[in-house]
Nucleic acid binder design. Structure first.
Lengths: 294, 294
DNA sequence: TTGCTTAATGAATATGGTTCATCACTTAAG
DNA sequence: CTTAAGTGATGAACCATATTCATTAAGCAA
C-alpha cells in the first residue's frame, strides 16, 4: 500500500537529489529508504527508479508518485497544522442555535468582535430544529443555544446573558401612541404581526392576552423584522418586539413602543451549553462576549 | 504523524458506524484501531472521539481528519490504480463524466475513433455525481468532465469543444411546425418533456420561458432521448434538444425543430480537466478528438 | 589505478503495530 | 431489577517489520 513515507521519500529525493541526502533530511538511514521503496516496488510490481550512473532516475511510476506526493503532502501538513490549532483551542467551529427570532440583530453584534478575536473559528447559525433547540444541543447538532426559555436538563447549563423588556410596537399616529402602557382589552380590534411561531410560544399571548382571556382581531405572520416594522409604521397593525430593538428602528421610522400592562413583560436571554464543555475556551469567550453586548 | 491508516480508520467508522465493524472491514482487531488512534491522539495532543453511550462521537479534530480522509483517500486509490496500469504496460484509463444528457450521442462519435487510436485505454462514462461533476473531477472520481456550464475553479481548465443550437422539437403535424421560430407565450398550452434535471438548469426555462415570465401547461420527466422523441412524434408534447441531434432523428421520425425566439439559444460544450494533468498525452488526445467531431 | 561517491543487499536489531484477554460501561430485553 | 449482548478502552505478550549496521558493487573524477 502506498503510504505517507513513500510520498515523503519521493519528495525528499526531488528536493535533495540523492537518496543519501534525502535520508538525512528525513532522519533515517539511506538503507531504510532503499528498503522501503523496494518493498513498495514489490507490491505495485513495477520499479520506481533506476540507477543512472550515480544518480537516480525516476520511472513513469516514480514520476506519478512524485506528482501525487507534491499535491497531497502539503495537505497533510495543512491538516496537521489545523489539528494543532484545534488542540490549542485556536480553531474549531461554533454552531449557534437560535430560538429567539428578534435576537438575530443582537447576535450579529456579538459575532462581529468574536470573529476578529478568534480568526480560526468558523461560525454557523441555525434556526430550525427538528427536535427543538435543546434536542439539537444534546445531539451535538449545535454547540450553543440562544433561547429565552431555559428548559432545565441535567446535561445542559444556562447562562443569562442579557435582559430586556418586551414591548408593543405601534405607529406614531396610532390611537394607542399617546399612552404609556397598553391593556389586554385594548388590543381586541388590532391586527398583530408576529414571526412564524406557535401562539403559545409568543409572550404577548402566553403572558399578556391569554391570562386576561383576550385576543386580537387578526394574527398575521411575517418572517422578517424590517417588513414587520414597515407594516406597523404605516398603521396596518401592531407587533411585539424587544425594547432595545424598537429603539434602534425608531430612529429612522415613525414607530413607538409601549409597556405591556402595568408591570411590563421582562425577558431574559440565556445561552445554553453542554455542561461537559463548560471549560472549552472558545465557548466561554463567546459567552463573555455575549454578556458584554447589550 | 498523520498516517494513511488513520484516514482509513476514520472513513471506516463513518461508513460502518462502530469501531468493531470498522475493524472488521479493515481486517484488523478493534483493539488495533483503538491503540492506533490513541497514539495519534497523544501526538496531536487532542482527542479524536469520545464515547457517547454505546456510540462514538467525533470531536472537532476527528471531524477534520474525517473530512480530510474523504478528500484524500480516493486520490490514493486512484494513484494506486494508475500505478497498476503502468505496471501492466497500459497507458491508463479515461473516466468521462457527463453533465449534458443529450451529448451522449456526440460522445459516442468521439469515443469510437479514440478507442482505435489508444487500444490500451479503457473508457468509462459516468453520469451521476454526488457532489456535482466538478466535485467528481476534483476528487479524482473522473478524469474529464463534459459540461455546458464551465463553472470556474482554479484547479480546473475548460476547453470548448463544440457549439450548437438548442432547438424546440415538435411533431411534423403540430400547429407550430409551420413556423420558423417559436415565442415563449406560444408554449403556454404545451406539454414539455425533459430529462430529470432541476428546472433552473434547463435552458428552455432559464433562457427562454422564465425571462418572458412564461411557462408550459405541464412539465413531464423522461429519462431517455428515444422515448422522449417518440412522445413528441405522436404529438403528445414538445421538448428541447440540440439541433444536430434532432436532425439525426428527423431522418427517421416525423419531427421538426424550431429556433427559440428570434435569436435562438446558442450553446457551447466544454471539456474540463484538472490543470495538473494538462500534459497527459491520452487526455490531450481525447480533447483533440473531441474538437474534431461536430 | 585510487579515492570518494552513490545505491543495493542481507542479517541483526529494535521499534511499534497487533492480538488476546479482560474490564467498564450502555442499552435492550426478560 | 436482573440479565445478556454489544460497545470501546486498556495492558501485557507477541510478532511483524521497519530500521540500522556492515558490506558490496558500481560510477565518477582525479
Amino acid at each position: 500500500m502506498l503510504e505517507r513515507i513513500h510520498l515523503e521519500i519521493l519528495t525528499a529525493i526531488k528536493e535533495h537529489g540523492t537518496l543519501t541526502k534525502a535520508a538525512d533530511s528525513l532522519h533515517l538511514s539511506q538503507s531504510a529508504l532503499s528498503h522501503s521503496i523496494k518493498k513498495l516496488e514489490g507490491q505495485i510490481d513495477t520499479p520506481i527508479w533506476e540507477k543512472d550512473g550515480r544518480n537516480l532516475r525516476l520511472t513513469a511510476a516514480g514520476e506519478r508518485i512524485q506528482a501525487f506526493a507534491a499535491r497531497v503532502l502539503p495537505q497533510f501538513l495543512h491538516t496537521e497544522l489545523l489539528l494543532g490549532q484545534i488542540a490549542r483551542g485556536e480553531a474549531g467551529s461554533l454552531r449557534i442555535g437560535m430560538e429567539c427570532h428578534p435576537c438575530y440583530q443582537w447576535l450579529l453584534r456579538v459575532i462581529q468582535p468574536y470573529l476578529e478575536q478568534w480568526p480560526g473559528i468558523d461560525i454557523d447559525v441555525k434556526q430550525e430544529f427538528q427536535f427543538g433547540g435543546i434536542g439539537a444541543l444534546l445531539s451535538y447538532e449545535i454547540d450553543v443555544l440562544i433561547t429565552p426559555d431555559p428548559l432545565f436538563k441535567p446535561k445542559i447549563e444556562y447562562i443569562p446573558v442579557f435582559d430586556y423588556e418586551h414591548r408593543l410596537v405601534v405607529s406614531n399616529t396610532h390611537a394607542l401612541a399617546a399612552q404609556d402602557c397598553v391593556l389586554p382589552e385594548q388590543l381586541s380590534e388590532e391586527v398583530l404581526f408576529s414571526y412564524p411561531v406557535e401562539e403559545q410560544r409568543l409572550d404577548i399571548f402566553s403572558q399578556f392576552l391569554s391570562p386576561a382571556k383576550c385576543s386580537v382581531k387578526q394574527h398575521k405572520i411575517i418572517e422578517t423584522t424590517e417588513i414587520m416594522l414597515q407594516m406597523v409604521a404605516v398603521g396596518r397593525g401592531v407587533c411585539a418586539l424587544p425594547g432595545w430593538l424598537v429603539d434602534e428602528y425608531a430612529k429612522s421610522m415613525p414607530i413607538k413602543s409601549l409597556r405591556f400592562g402595568e408591570q411590563g413583560i421582562r425577558k431574559q436571554i440565556f445561552v445554553g451549553i453542554r455542561k461537559d464543555e463548560r471549560q472549552v475556551d472558545h465557548l466561554n469567550e463567546f459567552i463573555e462576549q455575549a454578556k458584554k453586548i447589550t
